[in-house]
């Protein structure tokens, strides 16, 4: 009971946070992105956990629109990275989403100072993606959608670039299963990949996912990212 109500609180906060990001991406107004974090609605711990779950996309308006982050929001983001390091036995997606957050800070020239880390920029391995069938590949890439950014260069983006047809198949599968979150995440990756078959109809596909699942702010976030992607130029 305690656990489930807390999980529900976390889930709700993640959705609020995603809504903030969507608003910011749509309006170009970065301040609104901080609403949930700076408004004092959620408790500190829950807010931090929610930022960790939404991951690097919490700072997506900063990355795609190149506006400076809100200082309060940035502070919570740094706290979230520090407070929720991956466990030793963490799944690769968990390790990578943490890496993506640290990467986002490095982009802002706000690297974490962790005296224990030998090389804070060192990449985790991505061998699990090379071994994965197209279904698992797409699922994992959708979970790691915050890494789908123009100009991003890491083992995960390289794995995605090697298998555009497989990711496109995963998109078809996700739409067929009505898994809108996975479809939106895969769709965001596809906007970045060369070699996606034209017959996929990606643009209409993204519109369809918005129509069917866009009321979920986590879905809307991925679709907004996909919309801004071609114009976005990162470092």
């Amino acid at each position: 009971m305690e656990q489930s109500s807390t999980s529900a609180l976390l889930q709700g906060t993640v959705l609020d946070l995603a809504s903030d990001v969507v608003s910011a991406l749509r309006s170009g107004d970065h301040v609104r992105a901080g609403g949930t974090l700076t408004g004092g609605g959620a408790g500190e711990g829950v807010a931090r956990a929610a930022v960790r779950v939404l991951g690097a996309d919490t700072l997506l308006p900063t990355a795609l629109l190149r506006v400076p982050p809100d200082p309060g929001q940035l502070a919570v983001f740094k706290d979230a990275v520090a407070a929720h390091p991956p466990r030793d036995d963490a799944a690769p997606a968990v390790v990578w989403s943490h890496w993506a957050m640290a990467r986002a800070l490095r982009r802002l020239e706000q690297p974490l100072t962790d005296p224990l880390a030998d090389d804070p920029g060192a990449e985790p391995g991505a061998g699990w993606l090379d071994d994965a069938g197209w279904q698992l590949l797409t699922h994992q890439l959708a979970v790691l959608a915050p890494l789908a950014l123009p100009g991003e260069e890491c083992a995960v983006t390289r794995a995605a670039r090697r298998r555009p047809v497989d990711v496109a198949r995963g998109f078809v599968r996700a739409v067929r299963r009505r898994d809108w979150q996975q479809a939106a995440g895969a769709g965001r990756w596809l906007t970045l990949l060369d070699g996606v078959p034209d017959s996929l109809g990606l643009e209409a596909g993204l519109d369809f996912v918005r129509l069917m699942g866009g009321s979920d702010p986590r879905v809307a976030l991925q679709l907004e990212a996909a919309r801004l992607m071609p114009a976005g130029v990162l470092l």
Partner: peptide, 17 residues
Amino acid sequence: ADYLRHWLPPWLDTCLE
């Protein structure tokens, strides 16, 4: 033929599921 090569796998997978 190209079209079917690309899309048979997700159709098959979801019909089996």
